[in-house]
Design a protein around this nucleic acid. Sequence first.
DNA 1: ACTACGATGTGAACGGCGTTCACATTACCC
DNA 2: GGGTAATGTGAACGCCGTTCACATCGTAGT
Lengths: 206, 206
Amino acid sequence: MSASSSTYHHGDLRVALVRAALELLEDGGAAELSLRAVARRAGVAASAPYRHYADRDALLSAVAAVGYQDLAHALAKVHPSPSTPDDLAAVAVAYVQFALQRPALFRVMFGEPCDRDSAERVSATQAISSYVAAIVERAFPGSDPEALSTAIWALVHGLAFLHLDGKLDSSDPAAVAQRVRASIHAVIAASASLASPAGAESSGRR
Amino acid sequence: MSASSSTYHHGDLRVALVRAALELLEDGGAAELSLRAVARRAGVAASAPYRHYADRDALLSAVAAVGYQDLAHALAKVHPSPSTPDDLAAVAVAYVQFALQRPALFRVMFGEPCDRDSAERVSATQAISSYVAAIVERAFPGSDPEALSTAIWALVHGLAFLHLDGKLDSSDPAAVAQRVRASIHAVIAASASLASPAGAESSGRR
DNA sequence: ACTACGATGTGAACGGCGTTCACATTACCC
DNA sequence: GGGTAATGTGAACGCCGTTCACATCGTAGT
């Protein structure tokens, strides 16, 4: 914005760098995301970012934090408070679509052995985890929320990565969505049958 | 081996490079895996690898191919022909353990936007896919093998990545195994109840 | 208003990287 | 043995992350 155009001390390099990095991620692979390229795009010298970020990983963590917020927003937009199996499937489709539409950002968020200590990352992870757990508890009140939410998060996350890496065909978005829904519905049917004590013999327990 | 020790044209640089790369991956992060470091470890000039591999990605693909074989071997060792839900859970635990024990190699295999055209990678992917599908068909003959095997592969793959990235605690191997088993059993119970509602043999727990 | 100081940006430099190219060396075929 | 293709070498290019001395700017204290 023009708010900072008159300053020769760039104004707000900290956020400008994150924005430049996001722009590079959008229209180019993650391979082209170098500190020097980000600085170039922001119009500063290659050494300027070090006044605001300790190293490249610190900037990447800030970028990832924005990614987590965007992902959370994309999921929330599907349904404010998902509480049925179909809601859950829709959220899962949105998760995978986010990964496929912004693959480079998704890899920055999840792909690399990043800083575990980054508070932003840890809290974002817990946010996702509790978000999934909340859906599971609403949709399947009788189930073990711990195991079921872990399983569902892993299932959705795995679907995203397998499509991203070309292990599953991602050329047709509709087919991808259908595949995600089919996978989710399998898990969902299971938990439903376990939650309702009516068909006791169907669960095969004990 | 000493078989190639007398040749000044190194003998078999092609496989020596892959072996050097694997050694570097084992006792160092994936970050230290540079072509120059691999060449150094193999005792040749930095440009020598280009006589055998088009570029760095080509060498990485060869390394990944070995990783796929190792993974297949590790899974087969758990059970030669898994056909019950418990067998499937054990295979899933082995999959996640492979990822945690050889994280750098696992990332090379699955992490990056690698060459899709590499025949080795494609066939290895199909091998894993059909392997999972075969287990599913044996264990759940009445189910939709397509959807169910996709879901299970994604579930296991997602569990591996979430542990690898620290999104799930991986400090205690036993706890990890328990978590994997719990997740798998949820899905398994569902498909079993769906596949064979009549013959409810006790397939729930070990 | 002037000055001193801390915050911010610059440019050059270091070593490492992937990759290329001309050149040297070796293995193999006739 | 001599020619040829395969294989390894060393230097070079441009890019990378990172550091450091230095320049520039906003601002607080007087």
